[in-house]
Design a protein around this nucleic acid. Structure first.
Lengths: 269, 269
DNA sequence: AACATCGGTTCATATAGTGAACCAATAAGG
DNA sequence: CCTTATTGGTTCACTATATGAACCGATGTT
């Protein structure tokens, strides 16, 4: 890990829940030496990526990121295009919806929308989504670059008792996704949370990210699952379209098959 | 300069005009070794601050900054509060308006608004504003922390024939600002651009940034100057208010005096 | 075919980062 | 009032890490 990576990794500890962190606390969170952490903070501060609250001496994210985000979004608009479909997805399903972008080997959370329907709901507050333990990640492994699977196998941290931590289990869920067109994660990241995801594509025709719904386990029924799948398809088409891509026919075919199985079940009894 | 600083400084070369840069070009812009630049890019890429266009191999700002900007803005809202008053300022004056934030010893551009009134107008595309050569910078030196003057004197780069490059000249324009309540820069950063700025304050009561109007030199008359001053006062009050601060009485008094001199001149002939 | 780009890699060299120990300041506890 | 445990910040011997000239293969121009 380079110094640059170590320093920038400090930024990941700041969140909406904990926007300001003191030196000691951050040192503990980052599990690094205090002097090192301090020097990194000073370096980040010089560039405006961190600023210090002059009253409390605590550190927070600085203004430099605002300009960068503006350049990025004006240049490669992703957030704007995802926002409206995501809102619709959250409203239609009554669950928390979020979209993520694949950049290199990591999946970055782009934006998340919470529905107002239930008082208990999933909250997405990770910047990076683990590939092996989230619906979005499994979806990415299923339809993204083949070499990602290696990267994912290298880091299979356990989050819950249900997290797939051996390559065989992972291969199985990825295979299921490749058969259905949807990624699923059942209590893989957190107990009581079910995830459902569909792939997103950009103008290059390659997978560019994923759109997902996170639902509370106790609410998940077959009816809700079907609704989520239907809405995920709509959201995926719209977001993919706004990113200048189109959903590959093969994926559309998988989706149609998966939805058909629900209809069959309806007719069965 | 630490490695962290060197690596992060690479990000400053990306702009709306040049959102993607190849390795060689970026190496030349940053005036550094190619191998070093490459390694820095790879490190930034790992963290999602940079991503590579898989088709052209060119680099661009990555998605990680989006999340950070969101955390920052949800936590310390600055952009949102400045946007509306800035738009109004641009419309009312017919010139380009922008706001900046002081973080440590540097002034970061927060957001800029261009008016539609004229086809020739100033464009703000710097992330960092030089303290000695811009109206905002002079305003910051006049009403901000006293030790900034030292930092400013340490780097007095020449941009035009009118740039103040010796401490005495700088002290004079800062003194003028302290007397009038407004920062001014006449062709200091670019030929043909006049800048006018007013200070901004936050909940701590300290200077937190500046709001400014950049006008094309040929359009600047006494009438326009007065209009700009009047509108700057309104914008400064509004932005300062939305940042949880209030304009100090001493500044308000300076502004009142400055506007009074215009009225006297009107009566004179 | 010769030359000039490009992105990316190698490896000896030496510069830059590291962290245990140390301050000074503040605050809680007895 | 003195002790103890925090806090943010600093020092300096040690060594891990960054550096850059030279190199590579690919692509593009003349």
């Amino acid at each position: 890990m380079s110094v640059v990576a170590k320093a920038l990794a400090l930024l990941e500890h700041f969140s909406i829940q904990t926007p300001e962190l003191g030196l000691s606390r951050l040192t503990r969170l980052a599990k690094r030496d205090k002097a090192t952490t301090y020097r990194h903070l000073v370096a980040l501060q010089e560039l405006g990526f961190i600023e210090q609250n002059p009253e409390t001496k605590a550190y927070r994210i600085g203004p430099a990121v605002l300009h960068l985000a503006e350049v990025r979004e004006k240049t490669v608009p992703r957030r704007d295009g995802a926002l409206a479909p995501l809102q619709r997805l959250a409203d239609a399903t009554g669950e928390t919806a979020h979209a993520s972008i694949l950049s290199g080997p990591t999946l970055h959370t782009l934006v998340s929308c919470e529905a107002q329907a239930h008082s208990i709901r999933a909250v997405i507050d990770l910047q990076k989504l683990p590939l092996h333990a989230t619906a979005s990640g499994i979806c990415t492994l299923a339809f993204g670059p083949a070499d990602l699977l290696e990267a994912a196998k290298a880091d299979m941290a356990r989050f819950t008792a249900h997290t797939a931590t051996d390559p065989a289990a992972l291969a199985e869920v990825v295979g299921t996704a490749q058969g259905s067109g949807f990624g699923r994660s059942e209590r893989g990241l957190e107990d009581d949370i079910y995830g459902f995801a569909a792939p997103l594509f950009d103008q290059t025709g390659q997978l560019a990210g994923a759109v997902a719904v996170a639902s509370v386990a106790s609410r998940v029924t077959e009816d809700l699952t079907r609704l989520i799948y239907q809405e995920l398809i709509i959201a995926s088409r719209e977001i993919t379209h706004s990113w200048g891509g189109s959903v590959p026919a093969a994926i559309e075919a998988l989706w149609a098959d998966t939805l058909a199985t629900f209809k069959q079940k309806d007719l069965a009894p």
